[in-house]
Structures are given as C-alpha cells and as structure tokens.
C-alpha cells in the first residue's frame, strides 16, 4: 500500500513535465503544425527560467521567493515562446518544411539549454555551482500541511503549484478547444486551412498564436523539471528524452487535453516502473526503461489499425498553407 502511494506520487511527479510539453503540442498541432522542436523548446524554457531566477537571486539583496518565481516563470514562458516564434516564422511565413524546422529547433534548443547550463557559471564570472535555493523553494509544495495527511495527502497534495496549474490548464484547454468559437475555428484551421480561410478565419494569425502559445506552454515543462522536480538546479541533458515523450503523449491522448492528464501519469509511471519492481538486475532495469517508448509504438500501431475518424490527427497536420495555391 505504502509503496503504491509513493509510486503513484512519483509517477505524477515524472508525468507533469511531459504533460506540459504535450498540452503545448496539442494546441500547436490543432492548428496544423507538427512542432518536433518541443524537446528543444523545453530545454529553452528550463534554462531561461533558471537563468532568470539565478540573476535575480545573485543581484537582489534579499531575494524573495515569490518574486523569483514570477521572474523565472515569465522568463521560461517568454524564451520558449520565442523558440515557437522562430519555428512559426520559418514554417508559417516562410513555409519551410515542418519536420526539418522542428528538428533544427530541437538541435538549437537542446544546445542552447546545455550551453548556457554548462557555461552559466563561467559567463557569470566563475561563481561555481548554479543553484537558486530561494526560488526553488517557492516552487515546492504549496500544501505542506495537507501533504502529510496520509496517502490522500501524498497523492493529491504533495506538489508545487506548477503541478496544479498543469491540471487546470488541461481543463481550460479542453473547454476552449471544444466548447468555444475560438476552439472551433482553431480546429478548422488544423483540419482544412483553405476552408477556414474561406470562412473568414485569419489562418495565419491562428497558426502563429497557437504555435507560439503552445511553445510557451511546452517550455513550462522545462521549468517544471528545473524548479519543482530538481529543486532549482541544472544538469546537462537532465531532461533526457522527455521532450520526445511529450510528442508521443499527444498521440497517445488522441489530441485531447484531458486524456493527456492521465496519459502523462501513465507515462511517468512507466518511466520509473523499474525502480519499483523488486529483484530487477541492472540489465533488466534498462529493458524496463524502454516501456514508455514501446507503449507509444503500440498506441501508434493500434490507432492505425482502427481508422476511426475521430482518432486521426488533424487532417492538415504538417502541411504548409498558401492561399493562392493553384
């Protein structure tokens, strides 16, 4: 029982970062843009948040947690939004290939994160270990009292605000996408930009906004890892491949934000399952670490067997749109 509670709690902890990435990517993909730059964008968000907090804490006389939180949050969001803007400009305005541009953005973003992560101390004048204790603490548990109340407290109340924000975001996104005109218009843009255009929807604007905001949200996944998950420290390549898992989760969730919530917990659980299975040798642990990828592949295969209309990706996903195409 106890171990199950811990497992669930750890799975959620692992999953939230992926959830941010996936939520952002759902918004992006609903507009017809397949942004394979999400892993890079998450690195950008993570390092930008850390740098914001770091420069604030080293320069402020008495760093204030809430201030550090606000600054790092804004930095992370803005920087990853900027990554999305590069991608948007290249693919929407300049109509570059989306897959290739996304991969270039990943190369750039991961390099960006690792470069600044590894060079920050040098660039700041050789201050040694980078950490942001004050801000890191502000991202910690927000219900310390409730968290200690048995299994319920552990499973539901032992997280920082980013965790709860992600759930709220998922619900909001669901509502916007499927219950409002803006959401309807956005889905139309992703399904058939020519139709949306003929119906008077500003396709370019929608694509830009969805892709940039989506990137901003994805970047919060990086911030989550740096602040809530790692408590305000940076390790190069620390997120590993969670960015790709975020893209996998979008498919797993069939482009629905609410599915992504429980999907992310499942992915998080699979990611750490090897730690909770007794008697696993080191080699077998490595095999278990394949699970999230294998499950994604399985989902890909199963959804391709069942060609249900509602389970398919947005019809215009990956295609550029040019109104005067003949």
């Amino acid at each position: 029982m106890g171990i199950l509670v811990i497992f669930i709690q750890k799975a959620i902890t692992q999953g939230i970062g992926i959830l941010y990435g996936a939520l952002g990517e759902i918004v992006t993909e609903k507009s017809g843009n397949l942004n394979l730059g999400v892993p890079g964008v998450m690195y950008m968000g993570g390092i930008a948040g850390l740098m914001g907090a770091f420069f604030y804490e080293t320069n402020a006389r008495t760093p204030n947690g809430a201030m550090g939180l606000a600054i790092s949050f804004l930095c992370a969001f803005a920087c990853s939004l900027l990554g999305g803007l590069i991608y948007s400009y290249l693919t929407i305005s300049l109509r570059a290939n989306q897959n290739v541009t996304g991969l270039a953005l990943t190369t750039f973003g991961v390099g960006f994160g690792n470069f600044f992560g590894g060079s920050l101390s040098q660039l700041a004048g050789g201050v040694g270990q980078i950490n942001v204790p004050v801000t890191g603490a502000a991202y910690g548990k927000i219900f310390p009292g409730l968290a200690s109340m048995g299994p319920i407290g552990t499973i539901f109340f032992s997280y920082g605000f980013l965790t709860y924000l992600s759930i709220v975001l998922a619900v909001c996104l669901f509502w916007v996408l499927f219950r409002t005109r803006v959401g309807l218009n956005l889905r139309a843009v992703g399904e058939s930009p020519a139709t949306a255009d003929a119906a008077g929807i500003p396709v370019t604007k929608y694509k830009y906004l969805a892709t940039c905001l989506g990137s901003g949200l994805s970047g919060l996944g990086g911030l989550y890892f740096v602040m809530e998950y790692s408590g305000g420290t940076w390790t190069n390549n620390g997120f590993g491949d969670r960015g790709w898992l975020a893209i996998a989760l979008v498919i797993f969730a069939l482009w629905k934000p609410l599915n992504a919530v429980w999907g992310s917990i499942l992915f998080g659980g699979l990611y750490i399952l090897y730690l909770y299975i007794p008697g696993l040798g080191r080699s077998m642990q490595e095999i278990f670490k394949m699970l999230p990828y294998l499950v994604t592949i399985l989902v890909l295969i199963v959804t391709s067997f069942r060609k249900k209309r509602e389970y398919q990706p947005p019809a215009a996903l990956g295609l550029p749109y040019f109104r005067e195409e003949r």
Binding site: R181, L184, R187, S192, T195, G200, I201, A315
Partner: peptide
C-alpha cells in the same frame, strides 16, 4: 470548403464572431 469531421452546424458558424 467544408471540414469533414465537423457537423453541418459547426461548419456553418465557422469563423463568425462571438
């Protein structure tokens, strides 16, 4: 110019302000 996965009504109101 219609979106296949949407209903007739959704297609009709597509892009209208509100």
């Amino acid at each position: 110019k219609l979106v296949d996965v949407l209903t007739a009504a959704e297609n009709i109101i597509l892009g209208l302000p509100g």
